[in-house]
Design a protein around this nucleic acid. Structure first.
Lengths: 150, 150
DNA sequence: TAAACTATTTATAAAGATTATAATTTAAGA
DNA sequence: TCTTAAATTATAATCTTTATAAATAGTTTA
């Protein structure tokens, strides 16, 4: 089925000088055939039949490698702490890639996106969430100063 | 300054039958005066001067109570695992509130939102991320079946 | 094909965020 | 003031992810 994508992915890995181990091959193949955006633990459990001695660390290592090569995207939910916000009105957040600062940002509600999503996916949408990422003014200034002095 | 908001919030708590303890009062006050969307640990550290014996659990308990009453929103980043996705093209995700299933969803890039955000906040935006939440078709059906049989 | 080099895997422990438990304390109404 | 249920504290446990060091195994080169 996705044999082509698998071969392409392996070529990409080889071109990046990444070794093709059986475990790595299996993680990649599993991800390519999966439609459900599995967690690291999902993958670990799915492969433990074939690789009874495989360590969780191996799954994480391979996911990191695949991400670095650009073959896999990570949807982070578990890499930092929850944030708490007293502003309970609808708004979005813009987050600085450098210093982590979170700033509120208002924009008219994207009802249109919700409506289209309902049509396409059959979901009954309750709400949505959006975060913008970038570099805040302060960090931009610091960046410029570094370039000057450096 | 935000003395009014504090009094309002306390009224809301009392109306919900929630006790006003010194620790709870402090957490609430800190959140109302904070503009940076603090983590639970931020709050814990900020209050340990005033309450040297306070437990982290107290902070978490109070944040949960404040959330349940609707005074606080939680931006979850740390409540579940990362998800991994082989589809590295731009797309959004729609997530089922009941079963947790994640489905890809395509929509024209929201360049307009990014442009406005740059103007308003001064950030240099690199990318954005959006998730829609709702109930998938399967879970909607199950819900209907329950209502019939129940 | 064998040897060598180094990336990868494994096993284990550690870190960090959050929740659970049980005993003690305390807010708020009678 | 007394009472009672709720809240707090201290502690341990859970869960995800990362770090470390020793063992293993891909890949290149002779």
């Amino acid at each position: 089925m996705s044999e082509n994508r698998l071969q392409e992915a392996i070529s990409t890995l080889k071109a990046s000088g990444v070794r093709i181990t059986p475990q790595r091959h299996a993680v990649l193949e599993y991800l390519l055939n999966s439609m459900v955006h599995p967690t690291a633990d999902d993958i670990y459990k799915a492969l433990e039949g074939k690789f009874p001695n495989m360590s969780v660390a191996t799954v994480y290592n391979n996911l990191r490698v695949l991400r670095e090569v650009g073959l896999v995207r990570e949807l982070t939910y578990g890499d930092s702490s929850s944030r708490f916000d007293c502003n309970t009105s609808d708004h979005y957040h813009i987050i600085c890639n450098s210093c982590g600062k979170i700033v509120d940002f208002h924009y008219p509600s994207l009802d249109e996106v919700e409506a289209l999503a309902e049509q396409v996916t059959g979901f009954k949408v309750s709400h949505h969430r959006m975060e913008l990422y970038g570099e805040c003014e302060e960090c931009q200034k610091e960046e410029k100063n570094k370039q000057k002095s450096g």
